[in-house]
Nucleic acid binder design. Structure first.
Lengths: 216, 216
DNA sequence: CACGAACCGTACCGTACGGTACGTATATGG
DNA sequence: CCATATACGTACCGTACGGTACGGTTCGTG
């Protein structure tokens, strides 16, 4: 297992600026618009530099994913003591954040890119996206539900199973629908609230369930 | 609202054979391998016929989706009286079928194709895929949970909400992971069973819950 | 049989992309 | 002030694709 040191800056500032422009091109026009000439033009750099820095086009794509992942930082959980109410709130916030991340322009564009290439390159980009992009949010969620269990508020045998249940309740088919381009999927608040209620009903201990029946 | 007459054969047999070959090319090599010349060669037809039948490349892609959707037929529900046990079984079967469909070679390839093009063509293919490919399975599920409600086994106010919850419980992030190329996601039986249990716990009436606590 | 429609195979065209090479400018260091 | 490195901009090359044109073949029909 490799050490998890997210290098402070995997690329030089100049290279970061180039990757930023590349992401912008990708978001605006899809993969077709992401040509090496286009990136060079948009970023005011030469194609020769592009190839020197990133090897080839696939290297550029990988670098874009790595760069974007390095930008997203999910704040660490503080060690406060959880109550039924605060657990509910934290899960709700997680749900909303998750939906917000998945619905982001850049996230959607990168997922589309990786999915489009996944049966050509042996899903190299897909693996990268899952590892670099999802680990953060996974860890945050796992820490949260683990804390809920330690506080006697959640009950489960397999934390991974519980997390995937939560994920499914929150996201449902929204991610794929957004990836397919379906518009007007912005009512995240209601969706998140429903998911939290269902999750707590499934995995909450009596303490939590009592609180819920009082409130709802 | 348009009449839902799935024409017995939207295309001629010859054209169906061509579309079959095109799907095979797409499944094997991804979008990059799906060239007009390649399709013509694989199907022993001329490019001229291709353009005559389908207009242009996008027309071919749309035709592939329509053709594949027309092949998938989900048997109608019979009107038998539901019991707690048979409801459980039917939902479990639905869950397994859903996962099996989503994990299919052709389904994954077409979803990847539509997603890859979704921010270029105004998500024309994505819309097509959702409308033609999902309506069948949606209707089947809605009919099932409606029957469960009429039999006094399920309780919910919004059938659409209940269905999306079931969908999320069954699929979780498996679909996107498969689209990204993650291998070894074949343990559908356990996943389906977990989803059914959770769904019935959320939406089952006392009748169902009693039965469940007896069984496990 | 003759005619025409549909179709096959191939050759062809324009374009656009990935990748490379070269000439020039800027800056850093001795 | 010179030398070296780095990077910019442009031009260039090979290739491969979408789309079109054309000659030859099959087949149904009057």
């Amino acid at each position: 297992m490799s050490v998890d040191t997210a290098e402070p800056s995997e690329f030089s500032p100049r290279q970061n600026a180039v990757l930023e422009q590349a992401l912008r091109l990708l978001v605006d026009g899809g993969e077709k618009a992401l040509t090496t000439s286009g990136v060079a033009r948009a970023a005011n750099c030469s194609k020769e530099s592009l190839y020197k820095w990133f090897g080839d086009r696939d290297g550029l794509l990988s670098a874009m994913i790595a760069y974007q992942a390095s930008k997203v930082r999910t704040f660490e959980r503080n060690g406060e003591r959880l109550t039924a109410a605060s657990l509910h709130d934290h899960v709700a916030i997680f749900a909303r954040d998750l939906l917000e991340v998945l619905a982001g322009d850049v996230s959607l564009a990168l997922n589309r890119l990786a999915i489009g290439q996944s049966n050509r390159d042996g899903s190299k980009l897909g693996k990268l996206l899952l590892e670099r992009g999802r680990r953060q949010i996974d860890r945050r969620a796992m820490a949260l539900i683990d804390a809920g269990k330690r506080a006697g508020l959640l009950r489960f045998s397999d934390a991974d199973e519980a997390y995937h249940t939560l994920y499914g309740l929150v996201v449902s088919d929204l991610h794929v629908r957004m990836l397919l381009g379906e518009p007007g999927l912005k009512d995240t608040a209601r969706q998140a609230e429903r998911a939290v209620t269902a999750f707590l009903r499934l995995y909450g201990t009596d303490k939590v369930l009592a609180e819920m029946s009082v409130l709802g």
